[in-house]
Design a protein around this nucleic acid. Structure first.
Lengths: 237, 237
DNA sequence: ACCATTCCTTGATCCAGATCAAAGAATGGT
DNA sequence: ACCATTCTTTGATCTGGATCAAGGAATGGT
């Protein structure tokens, strides 16, 4: 292994404040860097891991876009999330030492692989890292519960509005346009994630288009009235 | 504080292998015990904590039964889980230092309160405890994703079957009958949790009753054909 | 033991979103 | 540049579960 090459993976990373190093001091980041990170490229359509694979590492998305999906024994699948730069993949596998979902790259991507054993050891040395990691895990629980709320008590239109608002917010945190979205996933993926059918996704996007809330051109979406989407979200009925 | 009183909270606890001490050695359990646990009783209907309360402690259910629910700003609420002996409450609050859900006792209950700061410090001393806690957090993520699958891709009948099978399994792990269930929650709570209306819960229970899968007498449910419920779960359509 | 309140069941009707169908737009491989 | 395949849109119809309604059963407080 060539240390000089690995050394600055996190340190010079433009998204480190959105990722695992969030809240660490520079020295701590260097320590994290030196001990365990290396980069892995993944081609569009390829799996980073699959259900049942033994768990060895966590992965922080460096560039690109992923989806995770779980499969029920009878063949049904459900998309459980879309991950972009700075977000961590594999947290669910800690519990069983095996991955319980598939992670598929939706565009050519790169991830930072983190050996989990080494990471746990480093957590013992750096209480701050451990503390941050507890928060990361907890944040994932909160995220999942937000989706449960969405799936359990929102109508299709609200779900899609929530989805778009959430995407826009995450793009914006990465200094990309919050109004000009390029969707990396199919209508079917979106539908699966939101618990609705792809035709319904398409119809509602068209409706939003007609209402001048969005401009929809295939996977290119421009949000024209963000407050319109927000209003949809917070107005019961 | 009286140490001799606290000393054996975990040590003598009949459900410790289902709770945070799971997988720890006897000495480790004693250490955990001595440092941070004390018991808190909660009356039926009372909140253990509410949304927005500052986060200070985790709570392990000692005896009794709880529900957690999140509320959307527009007033809608969603039940996110039911917790019984050995299960941990408050994990979602680690991320923000504030509770993001309400936890309500559904019967007279008792919890072990665990100061989270102290717990994190102990985790630094006992790598095994920290490792187990990572698994606990990850297990919660897996649980939530299971519910996402349920809410996103199952029909009402399957959801209810899954709910009953899950409850039975958890009772059975606690050496209570897996066939004779006493529901602690209302039909409305169940419906909220499963993303369906209370009338639908009631109708489907009646239908299961008619099909001889269950015997339903209000909140007393006897599972007559567990395989019948399983079959319902794994048969798509 | 009684009354108030909350919970549960069942029936009748309605509708949001599923399903079925088919044509058009992108995308990728050679 | 072409063809195959996958993705998207839109229309017509159907249906599972929601909603509205009302009577009955538990539960808890006095």
């Amino acid at each position: 292994m060539d240390f000089s090459e690995l050394k600055s993976v996190c340190y010079g990373c433009s998204i480190r404040e959105l990722c695992l190093p969030e809240g660490l001091t520079d020295e701590e980041v260097l320590l994290l860097d030196q001990h365990m990170l290396h980069r892995v490229p993944i081609r569009k359509g390829e799996p980073l891991y699959r259900t049942g694979d033994p768990f060895k590492s966590l992965y922080a998305v460096s560039t690109g876009f992923f989806k995770t999906s779980i499969l029920h024994e009878d063949g049904r699948t459900q998309v459980t999330g879309f991950q972009m730069a700075g977000e961590v993949l594999g947290l669910d596998a800690i519990s069983t030492d095996h991955h319980i979902c598939d992670a598929i790259a939706l565009e050519d991507s790169a991830v930072c692989e983190i050996d989990f054993n080494q990471f746990e050891q480093l957590g013992q040395l750096m209480s701050n890292l451990q503390h941050r990691f507890n928060k990361t895990l907890s944040r994932e629980i909160v995220r999942d519960q937000g989706i449960m709320l969405l799936l359990g008590s929102m109508r299709a239109e609200e779900r899609l509005a929530a989805f778009l608002v959430n995407l826009a917010k995450r793009f914006s945190a990465r200094r990309q346009s919050a109004s000009q979205l390029v969707l990396r996933m199919t209508r079917e993926d979106i539908g699966s994630y939101l618990g609705i059918k792809l035709e319904t996704v398409s119809r509602i996007l068209s409706r939003f288009h007609d209402q001048q809330l969005l401009e929809v051109r295939g996977r290119h979406i421009r949000i024209l009235k963000p407050q319109g989407l927000d209003r949809l979200l917070n107005s019961n009925t």
